[in-house]
Write a protein that binds this DNA or RNA. Structure first.
Length: 272
DNA sequence: TAGGCCATCTGGTCCT
DNA sequence: AGGACCAGATGGCCTA
C-alpha cells in the first residue's frame, strides 16, 4: 500500500522549523527515546534551557565541546545544545538530499503536477536507473543505425554522422520543456518492457532495464506498433529515400501523463 | 488495522 | 576535532 497523496502538498520534503518543533515536541512529550527531550532549533540560543546563555557562555560552551572526552562533564543543557547542532546538520543534509531527489523527479519522464502523487524515493531511483540505461541503449542503437544507413555512402545533403550520429540533440535537456516527457519516440518508456517487435534493443542495457524494473506493477505493456525507431518520422532523408533517424526529425513524444496513468496506477491513479 | 513512506533523532564510523 | 555519512529506531500520516 501506499500513501504520499496528500503529502505532495501538505508535507514538504523539508518541514518548516515550526513543524519540526511541534513534531519533536510531541516526541518529547511522549517520552521520546532519545537522550534529549529536544525542542527544535538551529541555534542553541533558541533552546529554552539555554536562552539565558550569553555569547561568552556559548563560546565557552564551544570550547568545551571541542573535547569529546570532556563531554561527560557537560551539563544537560550543553549536551542538548550539541545534540541540537548535530541534529540540525543532519536535517539540512537530508533536506539537501530531498532537494536533489526532487530535481531528479523533475527530469524524469513522469507526469508532474500538484494533482499527481510524486514518485517515492525508491521509485524515483529505480526509474532514473532504468531511464539512464534506456537512453544509453537507444543512443548506441541510433549510432548503429546511422552508421548502417549512411556510414558507407553519401547521404542527404549536409548530413554528417558526426553531427547526428553523436546525438548531440537527441536527448532531453534538463530544464528543457521536453525533458519531463518520454522524450524519444525511438525508444519505449523506461518503465515499460521492451516492445515485442524490438530487434536490436535486446542489448545488455535493455535487459538490465527489464531485470531491474520494479516488481510492484509499475510496468505495463507498451503501446503497440512502436518499432526501434518509433512509430513515425516527420520526413524522409533527402535523396536517400530513407527515414532520417535524427531525433529532431521525429514527431514529439506523447505526453507522459498518459503513460503515467497507465503504467503507474498506484502513483497517478491516487491523485486527488 | 496493517503496511508503505517519510522525517527526525541518534550514535557510530570515516574523512579532511 | 569537526563535519559528513550511514543505518537503526521511532513515530506520524495516509491508504486499502
Amino acid at each position: 500500500m501506499d500513501s504520499d497523496t496528500s503529502r505532495v502538498s501538505s508535507r514538504p520534503s523539508s518541514p518548516e522549523v515550526d513543524d519540526i518543533f511541534l513534531s519533536t515536541l510531541k516526541k518529547s512529550v511522549h517520552g521520546f527515546s532519545g537522550a534529549v527531550s529536544s525542542t527544535q532549533s538551529d541555534s542553541p540560543s533558541d533552546i529554552p534551557g539555554l536562552r539565558g546563555l550569553s555569547a561568552a557562555d556559548e563560546e565557552a560552551l564551544a570550547l568545551r565541546m571541542a573535547s569529546k572526552k570532556d563531554r561527560k562533564l557537560l551539563s544537560e543543557n550543553e549536551l542538548q545544545a550539541i545534540r541540537l547542532k548535530i541534529n540540525s546538520r543532519e536535517r539540512k543534509r537530508m533536506h539537501d538530499l530531498n532537494v536533489a531527489m526532487d530535481g531528479l523527479r523533475e527530469v524524469m519522464p513522469y507526469a508532474h503536477g500538484p494533482s499527481v502523487r510524486k514518485l517515492s524515493k525508491i521509485a524515483t531511483l529505480l526509474l532514473a536507473r532504468n531511464y539512464i540505461l534506456m537512453l544509453s541503449n537507444s543512443l548506441e542503437e541510433m549510432k548503429r543505425l546511422v552508421s548502417e544507413i549512411y556510414g558507407s555512402s553519401g547521404h542527404h545533403g549536409g548530413f554528417h554522422p558526426s553531427a547526428c550520429g553523436t546525438m548531440t540533440h537527441a536527448g532531453p535537456v534538463p530544464g528543457h520543456p521536453g525533458a519531463s516527457h518520454a522524450s524519444h519516440p525511438a525508444v519505449h518508456h523506461p518503465l515499460l518492457p521492451p516492445p515485442p517487435s524490438t530487434t536490436s534493443l535486446s542489448a545488455p542495457g535493455i535487459s538490465a532495464v527489464t531485470s531491474v524494473r520494479p516488481h510492484h506493477g509499475l510496468l505495463k505493456a507498451p503501446a503497440a506498433g512502436a518499432g526501434p525507431l518509433g512509430s513515425s518520422f516527420q520526413h524522409w532523408g533527402v535523396g536517400t529515400g530513407m527515414p532520417c533517424p535524427c531525433s529532431m526529425c521525429q514527431v514529439p513524444p506523447p505526453h507522459v501523463s498518459s503513460m503515467s496513468s497507465v503504467t503507474m496506477p498506484r502513483l497517478a491513479g491516487d491523485s486527488k
